[in-house]
């Protein structure tokens, strides 16, 4: 009886071995790209003096949410500097940004596909469930084999782990756009691509942005785990403090993660609602431009209009 054993594990092993043997060129390529992207972003974030980044973050905060948030952001980042985690925090931020952007680039098209096709939705859904519930550490194992130690397995594991809400919320957003409005697009002869671009995506945007927010937050939570495979940054500090039972280091690195998390969360959350100071500013400008254009237009085109349409008596 005890002989019964489904060799699922060894199949997975064989599968990874097969991929490593036959597609290593592909993984080398991916590694080069991911690594390059990470190096670049990290360079931008980590090489200037810290106060430049702090000021930029404060300015962004001011535009997106207002002065209270800007002050909070500046204070928070200075705390990170104060506990001597700045360099690590910037490394982690670079990792989060690269992984999030890649995860978003993959998940939004997948979400659109799932929204447009019931079949695709039925296939994608269980895969997402699998990806999201499989303990995140497990991804690190094949990632290590395929990409070797460093930031790339960290990025890869982060993408897989963080992608799901991006797909789900994009699908949900598009599917919950008022059926009649989409039908209106169809009834006036718009093509599916045009309906997607002009109706479905704009109206789904708040939900899609909520998905993007989730992706970023999950990415950040994955950073600590990525520290185990040599991705560096705050994650590595947390792992080190764990192995040394170093309460003070653990607390300081952990606090830095929390500060980054709050900053990123508030920033992306308010982008979704579209009611940011910068959003209002842009809307006002657009409105002014439109009214001006309209005035000009009615001045020049009134005769055209009269010729075109019979006027009511």
């Amino acid at each position: 009886m005890n002989d019964f054993r489904i060799p699922l594990g060894s199949w997975a092993d064989d599968f990874i071995a097969f991929i490593t043997d036959n597609f290593s060129f592909l993984f080398d390529f991916v590694r080069t790209i991911f690594n390059g992207a990470y190096e670049f972003v990290d360079l931008v974030l980590a090489s200037p003096p810290f106060w430049v980044i702090v000021l930029v973050a404060g300015a962004l905060g001011l535009m997106v949410r207002g002065w209270k948030f800007a002050v909070g952001a500046v204070v928070g980042l200075i705390v990170i500097v104060g506990v001597d985690q700045w360099q690590n925090a910037m490394d982690s931020l670079a990792l989060v940004l690269v992984a999030s952007v890649l995860a978003i680039l993959v998940s939004i098209p997948l979400g659109i596909l799932a929204a447009k096709s019931d079949l695709a939705s039925k296939i994608i859904r269980p895969i997402l469930d699998f990806m999201q519930t499989m303990p995140a550490f497990v991804y690190l194992i094949p990632a290590l084999i395929l990409f070797r130690v460093g930031v790339v397995p960290g990025i890869e594991a982060t993408i897989i782990f963080a992608m799901a809400p991006g797909v789900r919320l994009t699908e949900l957003g598009i599917r919950s756009v008022d059926r009649e409005v989409v039908e209106a697009g169809e009834a006036f002869g718009a093509s599916p691509a045009r309906i997607l671009r002009q109706i479905q995506l704009p109206l789904a945007m708040p939900t899609v942005m909520a998905g993007i927010n989730q992706v970023i937050m999950l990415s950040l939570s994955m950073v600590v785990i990525a520290g185990m495979v040599g991705a560096g940054g705050l994650g590595q500090q947390v792992v080190a403090s764990l192995s040394r039972i170093d309460v003070s280091l653990g607390f300081e690195a952990g606090l830095a993660v929390v500060i980054l998390a709050i900053f990123l969360d508030r920033m992306t959350a308010s982008l979704g609602t579209g009611s940011t100071p910068i959003g209002r500013l842009l809307a006002a400008r657009k409105h002014r431009r439109q009214s001006a254009a309209a005035a000009a237009e009615s001045a020049i085109s009134a005769p055209v209009a009269d010729l075109k349409t019979p006027q009511p008596a």
Partner: peptide
């Protein structure tokens, strides 16, 4: 649909944005 038939909807179906 573009040239010959247009439609008015029960709940208006305007583009809200």
């Amino acid at each position: 649909r573009r040239r010959s038939v247009s439609m008015v909807f029960q709940h208006f179906a305007l583009l809200p944005h």
